[in-house]
Amino acid sequence: MITTLIYSVTGIALFCMGFTALILCSHLLRKILAINFMASGVFLLLITTAYSPDPALLDPVPQAMVLTGIVVSVSTTALALVLACRVQETTGSAVFKRLLPFRKNKGQKD
């Protein structure tokens, strides 16, 4: 019970740390990393619910859901990275703070 609790609370802590970084960091790469942190926290929490001391009672449903989630998380991360690279190429910066007021951008016109 106490082992499960440690893993679950670690999962929640990872989620909250990722959430904090998502709000506070302005670089797009850090935001993507933060979302990955949050996803890892959720996966840890979910996979912990599957645990049981008796091997016959291991719940396969959360395991399958986490397996699905990992693949989805990998593909969304890849798409987000491609988009971030494109933002960097187009605007010359991948820092989110500078992206919002387009007028104040470095005057690159293409």
Binding site: A50, L57, D59, P60, V61, P62
Partner: peptide, 8 residues
């Protein structure tokens, strides 16, 4: 208790 029994 989860769904282990149903799956089994």
């Amino acid at each position: 208790g989860g769904l282990a029994a149903q799956v089994q």
